[in-house]
């Protein structure tokens, strides 16, 4: 009988890296369906491109780093990075944008730092920010939510737009796209309009945030709550981000509702919800202590509001997350839990 065994514990919860990643991927799917409902096939195609590129880049880097392929390709982390990146890219962005972003995320954002578990920054956000800075035109051409009501744009049309740059009905990309609600508010506020004027006069706005976007947001929220319920993530980071945005947003909104949009607009607008539940909670790059996660979430919430309101970019989730990624090790150091038996604090 071969009884050479490692020491205790001799049983395991059955939790695995791959099952955690799979749960996150599944939680994202309702929002992808909602997104596709409102904005067409672009996201589905982009997701396919991004995931394929991400997995291929991961395989290439594992090869170069002489690591075993099976356990790491099977963990699902590259697939998730691809999906999150695709979610961040405008649905009609040309294919090479997505390929470039996904490859950069995996190769530079992840493997040059040592691969799974060692990247200090969220790889999807590294890829996104690289694209946003390098290709601002392509990265800000978002789809107008009412285009699909006016025009019949099918799957093959979308494929043609993404891969060949062929736009149907002899339209241009500019005609099909529009700014995001966040972007619009930002530019219009610069022309001395009040928030209510801007929102009343534009079809981009729905009940409390952008048309379509608010529904995608609802499904992201649902997916996020499921992740907390499944104990894949803890409540700390999302709750800290959202309540910080709500508190700061309410403060300025109540002080001057003409200049500052409502807190709900901040929560359901832009990338806030996907950021709070799916991006900031990326375990590798986030804070690990209970109090640290709260500090980390508050930091992200504050940075989102500050950059959106007074900074140069209409949305700020990616920058806020990357900046707080940088601070995470320091936050962890200062927020270590109190050790049992040490009334004064740490061991």
């Amino acid at each position: 009988m071969n009884l050479i065994t490692p020491p205790a514990p001799h049983i395991h919860s059955g939790n695995r890296v791959s099952s955690m990643m799979t749960k996150v991927i599944l939680a994202l799917i309702p929002a992808i369906i909602a997104y596709t409902w409102f904005f067409g096939w672009g996201l589905v195609i982009n997701t396919a491109i991004a995931v394929t590129t991400a997995v291929a880049s991961e395989a290439l880097m594992l090869r170069l780093r002489r690591r075993r392929l099976a356990p790491f390709l099977g963990d699902g982390s590259a697939i998730l990075t691809g999906m999150l990146l695709a979610f961040s890219i405008p649905p009609l962005a040309p294919w090479w944008i997505t390929v470039l972003g996904a490859a950069f995320a995996l190769i530079v954002g992840k493997h040059l730092y040592g691969g799974l578990g060692y990247n200090p920054f969220n790889p999807a956000m590294v890829g996104y920010v690289m694209l946003l800075i390098s290709f601002p035109r392509e990265m800000t051409a978002w789809m107008h939510p009412y285009i699909l009501e006016q025009l019949e744009i099918g799957f093959t049309d979308t494929l043609g737009m993404i891969f060949l740059g062929h736009y149907p009905y002899d339209l241009s990309l500019d005609a099909l796209s529009s700014a995001t609600p966040l972007d619009l508010v930002k530019t219009e506020l610069g022309t001395n309009n009040t928030v209510s004027e801007i929102m009343a006069n534009n079809a981009l706005f729905g009940d409390f945030a952008g048309t379509g976007w608010e529904w995608v947001g609802n499904w992201l929220l649902l997916g996020g709550v499921l992740l907390i319920y499944q104990r894949v993530i803890t409540w700390h980071i999302p709750v800290a981000i959202l309540s910080t945005l709500f508190v700061i947003g309410s403060f300025f909104f109540l002080a001057d509702p003409d200049t500052y949009p409502s807190p709900l607009f901040h929560i359901f607008g832009g990338a806030t919800l996907i950021g709070a539940f799916f991006i900031a909670t990326d375990p590798v790059s986030a804070s690990t202590t209970p109090r640290g996660r709260i500090v980390y979430g508050i930091g992200i919430g504050v940075l989102i509001y500050v950059i959106r309101t007074w900074g140069g970019y209409p949305d700020a989730v990616a920058f806020a997350v990357l900046l707080m990624n940088m601070a995470a090790p320091t936050i962890d150091y200062y927020t270590q839990p109190r050790v049992y038996g040490h009334p004064g604090g740490k061991a």
Partner: peptide, 19 residues
């Protein structure tokens, strides 16, 4: 064994408040 993904599940379950 896989590399640590810093999910902090261990931090959440430690009865002694350790990391």
């Amino acid at each position: 064994t896989m590399p640590c993904i810093r999910c902090a599940s261990c931090v959440d379950v430690c009865p002694c408040g350790l990391l």
